[in-house]
Design a binder for these strands. Structure first.
Length: 295
DNA sequence: GACCAGGTCAGAC
DNA sequence: GTCTGACATGGT
């Protein structure tokens, strides 16, 4: 199979998009070169100059999976322009993290990944997601010499126990993950367990109703639900607030004074409206980098 | 060896 | 309704 090459979208950066904290199932091979999995497929991809190289990929697979996964059809120039028009404060963050696209990830993987994410650092989340895939997911073959495994489907996790999950070092989250698997397997509104099934249900709901539905799962609070809603369900007005976002929002807009999550949330909703998710991601990535360079 | 991490829950006021 | 401590485990 040959490689499929797309002329790079001028607003897109592979490394920033993958490393910004929205996804966990990838491995860096070299600068701007990665292997990753999504939707039960593996991918070896590299950004080189103004080109994106999809190794051993057909045009059909690109059109079917990756074009959508990387959100390549969206006009990020106008997203950023509109954000800057409403809020000059975002200028530094957007300038630093200009190449971030919000991926369209699959529902189940995103749900479980962000349940795992609570009170954990990103490197450890990645390890657990990787281990869970290796143990329960389909083997996809070698990509750039790396053995890749798909994130398991709900079916593949059907009979997994809490103890099994604890072996993956999920700690107190094991019970939460178990509940998420059970609830997803028994979704009364879904016709099946494919990503399309989940999407067709959630796409008819407002972000608010999505959050309400997701928070029925034990261990899924407002933050995790907001991440699933933003990163998998296409609700780009979702504004997840974690410790980093809370910190930078308080510093930028609340005069450094301790502020409740709900107040930050309504402030963001008012300010960013339908673009909350983008603003959040630029801010999150920027805030973390800032903290790193200070040390 | 503290202290913190893309939080959430249950129990105490 | 709001506040607080507990929760497993690994990074820094």
């Amino acid at each position: 199979m040959s490689n499929y090459i797309v002329k790079k979208e001028t607003e897109f950066d592979l490394e920033q998009t993958l490393e910004c904290g929205q996804c966990f199932h990838f491995l860096k091979i070299a600068d701007e070169e990665y292997v990753l999995t999504a939707y039960g497929r593996g991918l070896h991809i590299k950004q080189e100059g103004d080109e994106l190289i999809f190794y051993n990929t057909t045009k059909k697979d690109f059109d079917l999976i990756w074009r959508h996964y990387f959100d390549l059809d969206r006009d990020y120039k106008s997203v950023k322009k509109r954000l800057l028009e409403t809020d000059k404060e975002l200028e530094e963050a957007i300038k630093a993290k200009w190449g971030v696209y919000i991926l369209n990830q699959s529902f189940f993987e995103t749900l479980i990944s962000f349940i795992i994410s609570q009170n954990k650092q990103i490197p450890h989340i990645k390890k657990i997601v990787w281990a869970m895939s290796e143990k329960y997911g389909d083997y996809l073959g070698e990509y750039a010499g790396v053995k890749l495994y798909a994130f398991p489907t709900p079916e593949q996790l059907r009979s997994v126990t809490e103890d099994d999950l604890k072996e993956l070092k999920t700690g107190f989250r094991a019970a939460y993950i178990k509940d998420a698997i059970d609830k997803v397997l028994n979704l009364e509104y879904s016709n099946g367990l494919s990503n399309e099934d989940f999407m067709s249900f959630f796409s008819n709901l407002s972000n608010k109703d999505c959050l309400k539905e997701l928070m029925k799962i034990k261990g899924v609070g407002l933050k995790v639900a907001s991440c699933v809603s933003l990163f998998a369900l296409g609700k780009r007005d979702s504004f997840p607030i974690d410790v980093w976002i809370k910190r930078i929002m308080i510093a930028k807009y609340f005069d450094g004074k301790e502020t409740k999550i709900e107040d930050i949330e309504s402030f963001a909703k008012e300010k960013y409206k339908d673009l909350g998710g983008y603003a959040q991601q630029y801010l999150f990535y920027y805030a973390r980098d800032l903290a790193k360079t200070k040390k």
